[in-house]
Write a protein that binds this DNA or RNA. Structure first.
Lengths: 179, 179
DNA sequence: CTTTTTGTTTACATTTGCTAAACAAAACAG
DNA sequence: CTGTTTTGTTTAGCAAATGTAAACAAAAAG
């Protein structure tokens, strides 16, 4: 649990001295020093204060970094077909489980639908590349046409259906990954 | 700071009693009760323990919920044109600054490029809907064709350019929002 | 109603979060 | 090089909070 390191990094990035930071959030400079070297751990309340003075918050503070591959071609794709429901999914960014976002490309046949997904945390975004689909959220239902998009928190059962006579393609991004 | 509520919610969601949770993370059930009702606040270390037993972590724990509008039509779009660089941007999900992700649709004219973006935290994903673009990351440069995508951490200056003879369209998602 | 299970509250020991002040080390000035 | 300032580290200590054990209450089960 190297909170100290991250705080120090933030402080320096903000061009502050321990003294200045201490003043800002009404703590002693000594304590800031201790925190940065992980000799002690602040309470959650004071951690919030500190982060506030560093222009951030708990949420952003606990979101990490670093990676490798960047561009993904069509053959990187892992494909999954579902005959019953009449859709197939292309994972266009391989093993993105470890990322913040997981984008997939889903193609839904006329009369088909995506796998209903149970409620979970996070957010989902979709952009309809072609065709028209219906977004089902709990027992609500929204029409989304080509060029339109949707954005929601998946706190209810949710899926897409294609009730038109043409295939539909949707670029679907979950954050965090859920598939 | 209603940490307790969230913990209780998680506990119930995992089908655990206070007792069970207490056993799992070697705390007293009384303490769990206090924490859930915000009568006391756990130390960061024990919060980590608790979250671990609930199948989550600080990072995910501090990512919030609740929203309103879901489907966005073309006229919800805020448009911005840049004659000099030869691109225009459509914000397809209005004021998504407060979300985890911010999707935009950027169209780049032949010879044009996007605004170079300075390094920041988070991740970015793009899907080329039409044309071919180059992704510039620091002094690296990647070709990305129609149907291909890219995913990276924007820790270097980054932008897109279109060196072809046709316009290119890219769906670009930043997490967290940066524009 | 009695027994178990689940959750709340109280009294208490211990730890730790945090301060103030002394100390050390750089940075700066003349 | 020597003295002054600024920045960071360490120590001693205490009030406050973290966490426990056990008693208590309420709800569920039998």
């Amino acid at each position: 649990m190297n909170i100290g390191e991250k705080i120090k990094h933030l402080r320096v990035k903000n061009g502050l001295t321990q003294q200045e930071l201490a003043n800002r959030c009404e703590l002693s400079k000594g304590f800031i020093s201790q925190v940065e070297r992980d000799l002690t751990s602040p309470s959650i309340a004071t951690l919030v204060d500190i982060l506030e003075c560093l222009g951030t918050n708990l949420k952003d503070f606990f979101n990490d970094n670093n990676d490798e591959k960047i561009v993904f071609q069509k053959d990187d794709v892992f494909l999954q077909e579902n005959q019953d429901l009449g859709h197939y999914i292309r994972w266009i960014v391989p093993n993105s489980q470890k990322n913040r976002m997981e984008p997939i490309l889903i193609q839904i046949q006329p009369g088909g639908s995506s796998e209903p997904d149970t409620p979970h945390d996070g957010e989902e975004f979709g952009y309809v590349i072609g065709g028209t689909v219906f977004l089902h959220l709990g027992n609500q239902k929204f029409r989304v046409r080509k060029g339109e998009s949707f954005y929601y928190k998946p706190s209810l059962v949710h899926y897409l259906s294609n009730e038109s006579r043409y295939p539909a393609t949707v670029l679907w991004v979950s954050s965090p990954p859920s598939f």
